[in-house]
Amino acid sequence: MFALMQSTRVQHLRVIVDPATGLRAVVAIHGERHPQALGGCRYLHYPDDDSAMAEAVRLAEVMSFKAALAGLPVGGAQAVIMRNAYVDNRAALFEAFGRFVETLNGTYVAAIDSGTSTADMDCVALHTRHVTCTAGAGDTSRPTAEGVFAGIRAAALARLGSSDLEGLRVGVQGLGHIGYTLASLLRGAGADLLVSDVDPGRVQLAMDQLDARPVAAERMASTPCDIFAPCGFGAMLNYQSVGQLRCAAVAGCANGQLGDLAVADQLEERGILYAPDYVINAGGLIHAALSHSGEADGQLARYLQGIGQRLTGIFAQAQAQHRSPARVAQEMAERLVYG
């Protein structure tokens, strides 16, 4: 674990166990340039403690990069709560987590992530003010989708010559809260939608409401489209799946889309433009940070527009250097975070 912390430059790893509620949690805090770090709180099952800690450490660095490239004055962090098969009182568990967050004296601000909800953050907020994504702060799905939408327009401009999405075929893989909202925005812009999801009900809803065409999940990667938008769980881009892609660009909201950074080089070799995930999907983090600071109403639109502008700059530099945008984005983030 120390080796992983050193390789990602995570400075702090805090662990809490509360037998009364069954809480077992870890918080990783990355970067020392800002006194406050913000990051999601995951509530998932993990095969062992080391897996949970490793995910917290890895994602804390990603959140730090995401915040830096979005221009936010916060560091990155990640909390992981290990989910048991049964919990007696979920509200009590998250209240216990809130008491733990309070002991960190504002160095960590909690937000929703996989497995958590605004109701959970409301429980956390009963014991600390260092939390966002509560019911009062609003859902992050919409701003995340809006940021990805801006990124898709930037990708279309860079690879297809126009940011106009009218008539473009976009494949949306994953129709969760963010994916479905993104699909709605794309349809509103005149895009021709192809959709897939493990939940047939979500697919049917997209067919009924968005005039989308369904594609079997196992065929989505190989189905021809202009832009492929991965919006499910991460690491779906690997050496095998990239070889099947038949699109001009990949631009979606899923976290950790690349199984390995070298996969981005494979995309570049195939002439497929890649929008780095922690740049294009920063809208949720932006909303959470601005809501916590009380600036969401006046600044959110400007920050979301900046996602497309940042990607345009990354794409231009990548093209000039004949490199993957993922490599360019990582170097930009490392300069901003590490100096």
Rank of each mutant, 00 (worst) to 15 (best):
Q319S: 13
A275V: 09
R42P: 00
T116W: 03
A189D: 03
S7D: 12
A288H: 09
A249R: 12
D265M: 01
H292N: 07
F233C: 04
D139W: 04
G98H: 05
V17F: 01
I112A: 02
R246G: 04
A189I: 00
V131L: 06
A85C: 04
T118N: 03
M220E: 06
I112H: 00
A135G: 10
A229W: 02
G298F: 02
H322L: 02
D120N: 08
A54S: 15
Y278S: 13
T21P: 01
A251I: 05
R302F: 00
Q240C: 01
R246A: 09
R14Y: 15
A191W: 11
D50G: 11
E269L: 00
S162D: 15
Y180S: 15
T181D: 13
G271K: 05
L237R: 08
D265V: 01
H322S: 13
Q11A: 15
P143N: 08
H127D: 01
G161F: 11
S324I: 05
L4I: 02
T116V: 04
H45P: 08
V170S: 01
Q319T: 04
R90E: 15
D208L: 10
R153K: 14
Q209D: 12
A248D: 10
A329W: 09
D122M: 10
L304K: 13
A320H: 14
F2G: 04
R323P: 05
L290M: 13
S64H: 08
A92K: 12
A111Q: 02
D122I: 08
T103M: 00
R202T: 08
G313P: 07
A67R: 06
G298D: 05
R270F: 07
G259C: 05
Y46D: 05
P276M: 10
T144W: 00
N89V: 02
L237E: 03
A125N: 06
V109N: 08
D49E: 15
H127S: 06
A145S: 09
F149L: 13
E331V: 11
A216H: 10
D122L: 09
Q266F: 05
R327H: 12
M63I: 01
Q319C: 03
E61N: 11
V215G: 14
G176K: 11
P47K: 12
M5H: 03
Q209P: 01
C123D: 09
D192A: 07
A20Q: 11
V279R: 03
A320V: 06
N89M: 00
Y86C: 09
P47N: 04
V172G: 09
P325N: 13
G294W: 08
D120V: 05
V101R: 01
L285E: 11
D139H: 14
S162V: 04
G308V: 06
L304H: 09
D277R: 03
L93E: 07
A96P: 01
V279T: 10
S241Q: 07
P73F: 01
L261N: 14
G40M: 08
G161A: 13
V203A: 03
G106N: 07
F94I: 03
